[in-house]
Every structure is written in structure tokens, then in C-alpha cells.
Nucleic acid binder design. Sequence first.
RNA 1: GGCCCCAUCGUCUAGAGGCCUAGGACACGGCCCUCUCAAGGCUGAAACACGGGUUCGAAUCCCGUUGGGGCCA
Length: 473
Amino acid sequence: MSGSVRVRFAPSPTGHLHVGGARSALFNWLFARHHHGTYILRIEDTDRSRSTEEHTQALQEALLWLGLSWDEGPPTPGYRQTERLDIYREHAERLLAAGRAYRCRCTPETLEAQRREAEARKETFRYPGTCRNANVPASEPHALRLAIPHEGQIVIHDVVRGDVVVSHAELDDWILVRTDGTPTYNFCVVVDDVTMGITHVIRGNDHLSNTPKQLLCYEALGYPVPVFAHISMILAPDKTRLSKRHGATAVLAFRDLGFLPEAMVNYLARLGWSHGDQEIFTLDEMIEHFDLARVGAADAVFDREKLEWVNHQWIRRLPAERLARDLEPFLARAGLPPARDAAWLARVVESLRERARTLVEMAEQATFYFKAPAGYDPQATARFWKEHAKERYALLIKRLEAQEAMDPAALEGLYRFLAADLGLKLVDLAQLTRIALTGRTASPPIFEVVSILGRTETLARLKAAAAAAGSAR
RNA sequence: GGCCCCAUCGUCUAGAGGCCUAGGACACGGCCCUCUCAAGGCUGAAACACGGGUUCGAAUCCCGUUGGGGCCA
């Protein structure tokens, strides 16, 4: 395979891009990049009532955030179905002229009655082909139906599922164009895919059942069929369809929850795809190793815990400067004042990255760097503010005031020396300091914290704690 | 309801007939490391849905059952 590969992601702008759609986009994108092909974004907005411009924009924003940019698509005209109505009409006319489609004047009422009769007979209703040879004149209100063969079967050659065989008898003469003149979903998809030269259709397994109908349409149009790959669905932990009821499902919601695009894409790729025992992949590594033949057929459960772990891995390996930039909106949202400067914020990030699974967590954990503790954890003070607390704080203040070097190693030396001097363990002084600086008993390494906070701020907080510890007793 | 798809630890997966006393990862437990929390190292518990075949031999192939999902209605 070479540069001739053309794939597409074709979402309907009827809602936010959810994780399932994002994974379809990702697999198409990876496949295109791996084969140096073309990745197209097509907006399937024929459902005028539910499609909105807001969703169309949000969809693109989400895709771009994930890093999945498209080679062809909006804002270039011609990639929205509503801009392609002439193309559908033209193809419908061709099918009609070729005798592969016919006008049907059956009313919804008639069809509904027939459906009920079939149901009463415990049969599955299929359009009986009433108008197939009726030569309904164009002047009458009519829908357009595809004339499909009565006998035989159709087979889908699916890269992930193998051959799927469906008997023609299971299908019926489905509607290509409704009485009101609007083309149906399945018809648009086929026309779009052929006219856009799509070579591989990679989409969710929920489309597998539509594929036989579409295949018959390709055939009627006389076009070659693309290669199909129906990838598995993403399920909720209770193995039902993923929905808002299960928490966040929209890609942009995960962004706002503090997940990184690298992590999102990495996690999504590992759902149904693997490469040995490797768990963490850069986009480049995914492009290099991605292979449709190695995509699994079984549905996958979306696991927030593992996503958080992957996110943590990315928080640990991305450059601190980059994380600092991404963190800023979360700091602002937490009501914290702006950082002194980028380099300082990078140090903050550096100290926090080992323990934050999301940027929201990181912003929360960063609070004490921006403002002195509003109070002290009662459990902490009860445990550490014993009789000697005040005098130990005083000693620490005295030593720190005399301390020149404020790098973590030097500070550790100071603390160890003082602890030995007092016959204490390092932990005793460290925890007293931690409570004073952060209000809690858990934080990044305390000498890092002191170093980042600086002498002035550290001393101020130690003095405040000394006073509080004194009055607490 | 009809048709289609799927089925390895709780979850994501490796496994493409003998390499399997079924491997890795998340989560969970223990130990170690340690200024706290993390991170890390070691370690433990944890799966081939069930039943028939095929084969010298099946997690791997076939059939059925069950369960889940999807499409159409």
C-alpha cells in the first residue's frame, strides 16, 4: 500500500465528539499517516434538525486538540453533506435511468399497515416491492428505492471481522431519496465515499449492519467497493452503551478534567489495539506500528482509572514548560494568582508531576505555592505540635535566616545537621516545616518546597506556624 | 422479534494447534526504599463463559448453548 490510501472520519454534528468517535477518528488518522495517505474530515449534517454549527465547530476543536488534523475537509467547501445535495441528486438520477432504482408512491400509512400485518403474522416486515414495476410517473409524489436482487447473498470482506455473509432475502428495496427529496443516510455515505475516492472505510461496528445495503448501492452505481474495517465499540463499565449517565464521555470534557491530548490518544489507541507489551506510545510510535490487522474485534470497556494512569505517565514525561502552560487555565480556575514567571512555574510543575494524575489534581496540589495555608490540618497539628514545636520552629527560623544557599541539597544538609544536633530524626523537623508551609503532612519533598518558595516566604510561614503552635498549646 | 457482530484475570490486552505451570498493564494486597505523599523495585491474589466435537495434542479450529453489543423493526 502506498500514498493512494484515502480514509475519512465522518461525524454527525448532532452532539459532542465522544470517546468512541474520537477513536474512530484516531484509527483512520493513524492508518492514513502510516501509509502516507490522505485523511479526510467530512461533516454528515443532512439531519438538519439535529445538526448545529456549534457542534460542527466543537467537533473540529476536539479533533485539533487531540492532534488529529485533517488533510482535506472544512473549512474548504464541499466537505459537508448539505453542500453536496446536487451530487446525491445526480447519482439518484443515474440509478433511476439505469433501472437500478425506481419511484415508489407507497405512503407511510400503507407501509405502517403492512408492517403491522407482518408483525401479527410474526414475520419481519420488508418492503414487498409494490412499486418496483409500477412505473410511477415523476409527477406523482414519490420516494426513490434501490432495486436489489431477490436471490443470492452479499459478502463483506472486513479486515477486522473476516467475511460477513448476508443473504439478499434479509434486505429490502431501501429508500435512497425520501418523498420530500432528501437523500437518506446510507445513500449519502455511499455517494460521498465513492466521489471522495475513499479506499478504506474504518468505522464503528454499529455500521456493520448497514454495510450490506451500502454494498448493493456501490454495485448498482458500478463503483469499486472500498476495504472495510469495522472496529469495536467502547462500552461503559456495566457493559452497556456508553452514555452521559456514566460520567464524562465527550473529548472536550476530558480536556477540562485535566487530561492531556497525548494521554487521551494513547489510551484510546490501546483500546482494541496493542503492540507487544508496550503501554505508552507517542503519536509517532503509534503511526509507525499501527496495523489494522492487529485491531481486535471485541468491544472494550472504558476504564477511567487506566486513563488516569496513562495521563499520569504523560504528566511525568512531557517537558515541564509545556505542562506549565497547560496548567495555567486550571490554576486560574482554582482562583490562584498568576505565577511569578514561566521558569518558576516550571519548577512548581516539576515538583508536582510525580503525584498528579490530572492537571486538576496538579492545580489543587499547587495551591500552597501561591498562597500561605489558610489553616492547618487538625490531625497534623494534634500529632506534631507537641511541647517542643514552638522552640523548634524558632530554631529553624534562626538557622534559615543565616542560610545562604537555598538549593534543596544545601537545605537538606542544614536540616540533617540540626536534627542530629537536637537528637531528632529528620522526619520531625521535616513534618513541622511541611505543616508550616503547606498546612498538611503530605507534599513534594520539603527541601524542594522551601527552595521554590524562597527564603522570605518560607520564613514568614514558619513564623506564622510558630505563633499558631504557641497559642495552640 | 429478525438479522449481524463479539466472548482470555474486575478492566485493557498478549496468545495466530504443542514455546502456556496462560505473559504484560490498570486497579487491589504485602515487603523494600524513604523527610511526608507519591514515584520506583520486589512480590501476592486474579482469567481461557459453558457443552460437544476435530486432533497424538486446543485458549487457539468447527458446532451448539449462554451472555453481551449492534442494526432494522
